[in-house]
Nucleic acid binder design. Sequence first.
DNA 1: ATGGTTGCTTAGCAA
Length: 256
Amino acid sequence: MRLATWNVNSVRARHERLLAWLAAHQPDVLCLQELKVADPSFPLDELRAAGYEAAIHGQKTYNGVAILSRTPLGEVERGLADDVDDPQARLISARVQGLRVISAYVPNGAVVGSEKWAYKLAWLQRLRRHLERRFARTEPLLLCGDFNVAPEDRDVANPAAWAGSVLTHAEARVALAELLSFGLVDAFRLKRPEPGLYSWWDYRMLGFPKNDGLRIDHVFTTPTLAGRVSAASIDRNERKGKQPSDHAPVIVELTD
DNA sequence: ATGGTTGCTTAGCAA
């Protein structure tokens, strides 16, 4: 089974690229983030024609997440289901081929110390509680998405330049580590421990031409599935050419 | 040279 996660930065702007990428890479499951459309504007028909069912949690202008699958999606759940009144569409989960797949778009956090920063840290805590309430570490779970956190300095091309940013700050890394302490492992790093692998490059400052990248998009899995991870990669090519997303797809292969 | 990009929506926000 091939599973991927990709922050497309507007499914409308990335429509052609999305269909071309699906055709070229044939993932069984694709988690999407930053749809930036409400549900009725999601290109369901074209994706069905391409062979994919979709579970959507859309939002106009900002956020929005989805899970695409070649096989049927069941038990779809949207949001963190806690007592916080939160209109931001950042989480969706579904059952696919006996697995529980989650597509998450963690808040960026803007600037350390800002209100958005506090929301980011709180959101990661809320996700941890959601996992505890809703799932067991003994079940086959795949938590995928844009986490807006580079877990370690080896995930950052230029750690000195990014020191103290919302993507690398110690508090964000601790919050991510606490999320993973639910009982999740970094599926990508199981197979790809080497440095120099990134999933996001800022549109500004010649980020991609200079390869000033960070690995902030992840696939985390419960230990029951870790042994089935057979390969992992990042499709850096998708960041090239005309009108790319600022994120590249992260791909994980699981043995059946 | 203290900027630089993109997307959504249409001046300003978010990333």
